[in-house]
Simulated scan of single mutants.
Amino acid sequence: MSTENQCVIIHDATLRDGQHAVRHQLGTEEVRLYAEAADRAGIPVVEVGHGNGLGASSLQIGRSRLDDDAMLTTVREALTGTRLGVFMAPGWGTGTDIRKAVDLGADVVRVAAHCTESSVTERHLGLVRELGVEAQAVLLMSHMSDAGRLAEECTRAVSFGAQAVGIMDSAGHYLPADVRERIGAITAAVDVPVIFHGHNNLSLAVANSLAAIDAGATILDACARGFGAGAGNTQLEVLAAILDRQGLRTGIDLRALLQAADLAQEHLMPGPPLIDSVSVMSGLAGVFSGFKLPVLSAAAAAGVDPMDVFAELGRRQVVAGQEDLIADVIQALKEAS
């Protein structure tokens, strides 16, 4: 397809999805430093929060170092031209969390649902529209559904008020052909911008993002240095450089973005994400990337092979929020050995 004059909106999830990689422990100074750098680079949207979104800080999936109010206030104060985004999944977050986030300056609110359950977004998308900020809807673990069903779910979300819709490759499971098929079906079904969010378990996050653009997506998610759950997300500065080379307009200052990525590596993360053997197994098994650290910790304590744990979690088709099943799987593996 021709890319002449095509505009792509980059949605930077470094300060939200990146939290998974550090057990949601980013502090005020780290959050502020990166937000300021992202703003200088002209990134359109910076998303901030607990890795699982508004209201998700909990014993089950991890307490965040900063609460939602502190994170949002810090980032809002750091942004001058960049919009502030938040992510919310019903069941973790509530309408009250959305109202508070908007009061604190959120410009874009994403409401997320499992790939076959867009119906749970209706009330929250309606609330976001009532509050006068941009409402988006994303489908999680989207590899667990086919293109036709994803298009139906996105169409339903649009009817609820979503002004952009899309899919997350939460497990890093897709191949580029999978992305083209699904994004193509969604863009054919809706008349709002389409979103793609990739993970890098099979080293395909950038390639899959480019495939999404080819199929009609105009909003891409990415993180500095790929900072994110498991093997990480689409690497922001690499994606932006490729889009620039292709002649696609992002409005981002690439030199300033590279500086922001350097800052992120120095201040936000112990090291860039690594595609290790466990990450590959997670991607192949179709298990949410955020399971990596909990699985490694629990498997080591129990003396079982984390590869076996991921294989069984994939067989059971677990989703984010079912981290308690890790212990059940480990116990079953020990009893079977």
Rank of each mutant, 00 (worst) to 15 (best):
E130F: 00
Q163Y: 03
V165M: 04
M144W: 05
R110N: 13
H173P: 02
T187M: 13
R149Y: 03
V128G: 07
R99V: 15
E117T: 05
L127A: 08
A157E: 06
V133W: 02
V158N: 08
G126K: 06
I186R: 05
A177Q: 15
A147Y: 09
F160W: 02
G132M: 04
V111N: 02
V111F: 06
P176L: 11
T94D: 11
A188K: 12
I183A: 01
P176F: 07
A171V: 02
A188D: 09
F160R: 05
S170H: 00
D107W: 02
L140W: 08
G184L: 10
A164C: 13
G126N: 12
V109P: 01
A151R: 07
D178N: 15
G132I: 10
G172K: 03
A188N: 09
D169C: 04
M141Y: 00
M168K: 02
E122D: 12
R99W: 03
H143N: 11
R182D: 04
I98F: 10
I167M: 13
L125N: 01
L104A: 13
G126L: 07
R149A: 09
A151H: 09
L175V: 13
G132S: 11
S145R: 14
V190P: 07
D146W: 10
T116R: 14
V108M: 08
E122W: 09
V109H: 01
S119Q: 15
V179H: 14
R110E: 11
R182N: 01
R156E: 05
C154T: 01
V133R: 04
A113P: 04
T116V: 13
V111P: 05
S118N: 03
A101C: 12
E153Q: 15
R149N: 14
D146M: 03
E181V: 04
G95K: 06
T121V: 01
I167F: 06
Q163H: 07
G95L: 00
C115R: 01
E122I: 10
S170G: 05
T155W: 01
G105I: 01
K100A: 14
E134P: 00
G126T: 09
V179P: 07
A164Y: 03
M144S: 10
V120I: 14
V128C: 09
L131K: 09
I183S: 00
A112P: 09
V165S: 04
C115A: 14
A135H: 12
H143C: 14
V138F: 11
A177P: 09
M144L: 15
S118W: 03
Q136R: 15
G184Q: 10
V165P: 04
H143Y: 13
L150E: 10
E181M: 05
C115V: 10
G105P: 12
V120S: 08
R110T: 14
I183T: 04
D97R: 02
A112D: 00
T155P: 03
V128L: 10
R149V: 14
L127E: 02
A162W: 08
E134D: 06
M144H: 03
R156P: 00
G126V: 08
A164R: 15
